[in-house]
Amino acid sequence: MIKRSCLLLLCCLVLFTQCKNANNQAKQKKIAVVISTLNNPWFVFLGETAAAKAKALGYDAKIFDSQNNTALETDHFENIIVSGFDAILFNPTDANGSVANVLKAKAAGVPVFCMDREINSADAATSQILSDSYSGAVAIGKYFTQQLNKKGNYVELLGLVGDNNTWARSKGFHSVVDNYPNLKMVAQQSADFDRNKAMEVMESILQAHPDVDGVFCGNDAMAMGAYQALVSAGKKGKVKVFGFDGAEDVITAISENKVAATGMQFPKVMAETAAEFADQYIKGKKDFPKKIPVAVELVIAKNVNDYIAYGKK
């Protein structure tokens, strides 16, 4: 009996050790890429670049589409943790709603590296690699003020009101333009980062405020929507339009003097940095900046030839 019990104890210990070894082996190979939505080409590019970089660094990489649904994102995180992934490259669906998922991964010992979108927690993620939306919008605000000669009426089209980037861009822009009292904001409305909605919102604003000199939009899709509304209202070339992102149609529009400026973001830089950080973490580095900004560059007619969509030539 004693012999049997000793054998059982030994088996338990061997099994425990083997489980640990198996985990360690898996941890060196798998990286999950969780993306808010694959319906938007910008996020497809972000996810595919992150996965490609992880593969290039020697890992198995799998992309998960959260379809802008926090509940689906939670399911992905649970599967990822159970499946023994070693790190998560994460583009959150919601700054607040995604925090619980990241904390769950952290508790399970899986590091999370946020890309592009921020979560509202200082220490849940191992590191957050984010576009410096505030500083990018400061540069746009400065150029906007110069272009309007410090005076005139303007409209601001905001993105999704629950998205941190919406407010970082708005705050950065206002940190400049609000210093010039002759620049008057006649309307500020959300168009949810959506081109069609921006067109409708702008059409309605133009009916109430036909004497507009400039439009600042929180992303390029809205800038193109606003531009279409201005063309329909016969104001083509009379109102200066400013966007944010660095999308292909806006880069073309800047070179054709339809749009005045945009803030160029670099999804490739964010995705590759996140994958590199995950690799460094797995190899033993634990000290990362909690949030690292990626510079947003001002694209205007003078330098537009240096740029292509989502990056430099």
Binding site: V138, G172, K290, K291
Partner: peptide
């Protein structure tokens, strides 16, 4: 037009690892 991060960053006086909130870094520039 005195805006942006030129002075903050050129000074080399800030270590990003000391900050968890990017808004604090923006406020230093401002």
């Amino acid at each position: 037009y005195i805006y942006g991060n030129a002075l903050r960053d050129a000074s080399k006086l800030i270590d990003i690892k000391d900050f968890t909130n990017t808004a604090d870094l923006n406020d230093i520039s401002e």
